[in-house]
Computed example of a mutant assay.
Amino acid sequence: MAQSYATAQDRIRQYFDTVGFEKWQRFARGEAQNRIQASIVAGREQTMATILDWGGDWRGQSVLDAGCGTGAFARRLVDAGARVTGVDISAREVAAAKERVPEGIFRQADFYGVSETFDTIVCLDSLIYYAEDDLLQLLQHLGRHMRTTLYFTFTPSTVFFEVMHTVGKLFPKGNTSPAIAQIKAKRLYERLATETTLRLVRTTHISSSFYQTTLVELRQA
């Protein structure tokens, strides 16, 4: 396992078990304290709605919510008729997900701790902290455990985010979330085609001010 992946895991776990927990609980309830948070809430709402639409009839599907957080999307999947299992490395978030979605099965686990097979796997903003090489390895691993479809999001490398990253370095703040990896979309798609067994089905970019993400649907080639 790459050191970059282990480092990202440590930072993510620490953040979501501490200062990030209450923030993401608010996001799960659709609450925002400022303009930036409001754009994140709105963007995630659009992303969740798009995944639900792309998935069609969720009734009876076994779904892994990989990086389930506090259970916001798991709640919607269950309401749509899916049988949901969620994993997350944050113990606090797993506890919150169990409370929010008592019908689901949730456990504290790393992505590589996934050993079962599911009809569909969803990674909603849970892979955005990993560099390109780590991201590809994670997708390949998760792809071995899905029967039909894998949905994931990544943050595309743009001038806007390069500026934001620079500003973040110039004006560092305490207790900030882990750094989001900026991914070159064209190169990622090329590497998916040549280095994995996964087939790109469709993509869409979701833009909501400070929330910029690309949603991808993959299937086995």
Score class of each variant (00 low, 15 high):
Ala2Glu: 06
Ser4Cys: 10
Tyr5Lys: 00
Val19Lys: 11
Gly20Asn: 08
Gly20Ala: 10
Glu22Ser: 12
Trp24Phe: 15
Trp24Pro: 00
Gln25Gly: 09
Gln25Arg: 13
Phe27Glu: 01
Ala28Ile: 07
Ala28Leu: 05
Arg29Leu: 15
Ala32Lys: 02
Gln33Asn: 15
Asn34Phe: 10
Ile36Met: 13
Ser39Leu: 01
Ala42His: 06
Glu45Gly: 11
Gln46Ala: 14
Ala49Lys: 09
Asp53Gly: 09
Leu64Gln: 03
Asp65Leu: 05
Asp65Trp: 03
Gly69Met: 02
Arg75Phe: 03
Arg75Met: 03
Leu77Asn: 01
Asp79Val: 09
Ala80Pro: 08
Gly81Asn: 08
Val84Trp: 02
Thr85Pro: 01
Ile89Val: 15
Ala95Asp: 11
Ala96Arg: 01
Arg100Gln: 12
Arg107Pro: 02
Tyr112Gln: 05
Val114Leu: 04
Thr117Ala: 09
Phe118Asn: 00
Cys123Leu: 03
Asp125Gly: 05
Ser126Phe: 01
Asp134Ala: 13
Gln137Ser: 04
Leu138Gln: 12
Leu138His: 11
His141Asn: 11
Arg144Phe: 07
Met146His: 13
Thr148Lys: 15
Leu150Thr: 01
Thr153Arg: 04
Pro156His: 06
Val159His: 13
Phe161Asn: 14
Glu162His: 12
Met164Gln: 14
Val167Thr: 06
Gly168Cys: 08
Gly168Ser: 13
Phe171His: 12
Gly174Cys: 05
Pro178Asn: 04
Pro178Asp: 05
Lys186Met: 07
Leu188Arg: 00
Glu190Ile: 03
Leu192Val: 13
Thr194Ala: 15
Glu195Pro: 03
Thr196Asp: 02
Val201Ser: 05
Arg202Glu: 13
Ser208Pro: 03
Thr214Leu: 08
Val216Tyr: 00
Arg219Cys: 09
Arg219Ser: 12
